[in-house]
Amino acid sequence: MQASSTSSSTETTEKPVISRRLDRIFLALSDVASFVAQFFKEVFMPPYEWKEIVRQCYEVGVRSLPLISLTGFITGIVFTNQSRPSLATFGATSWLPSLISIALVRALAPLVTALIASGRVGSNIGAELGSMRVTEQIEAMEVSGTNPFKFLVVSRVIATTFMIPTLAMFFVFLGVLGSYVNVAQNEKTSFMSFIETFFSSITFLDINSTVIKSIIFGFTIGIVGCYKGYNSSKGTEGVGKAANASVVTSMFLVFIEELLFLQVINAIRAA
């Protein structure tokens, strides 16, 4: 455990600098891989912490609603307003709902929701678990016969994995509403006509890919926050670092995943 992991890190001190750095990278990667593997092992094994899962879903989902609603609504208004002049040049302002639907469903909703969640939820998870680690609350759970990984990590990762796609869909809904408010003021379009044009431009592939992408983003945000918090050390300084690293790492990974997912979806569309 602690003792053996410390000894393995001291063994590396005698090696050349590049080798030591490589060792550290690979050790960190193997540590992350075993953390993820433990999640998949624990998630299917009873007992299931339903009460804690529901509590975390409330924390991640319901408590993020005001921020997601505001951001979605304003994004809808701003994006519509900013896109209008370009379309007006070609006399194509009637295409605004189509443009908004593609932008919102395919890219903006999952990405912006994930970024907001990284900041709000990821940092919260990192700080909370980090603080529990340094105040020995995690060890207290362990000695009282409770599996802290299942109670703390599994419940949080399940919550982010299910709640972030839900929040992304909510973002789309509020974005559409914001966009319609702007369109209705300028183009005098009826709501039904707006919705009809909106949905005519997107396919099931778009909606499915957004949901799947958001599930991946949610899992990433949850697992990164939990990993950083659960393994934090060095007292209160460690708690701050865990919270910060949770946000930075999950945002970075969300962008990388967005790029990779884009390639996959483009390949599917081309096929």
């Binding site: 105040t135 020995e136 609350q137 060890e139 207290a140 009282s144 016969g145």
Partner: peptide
Amino acid sequence: LDALRLKLGFSFQNSALYDS
């Protein structure tokens, strides 16, 4: 080990009460 731990009471230095 979990079964044995139930026969041990561990009082931590900072109490380790669950804050939430």
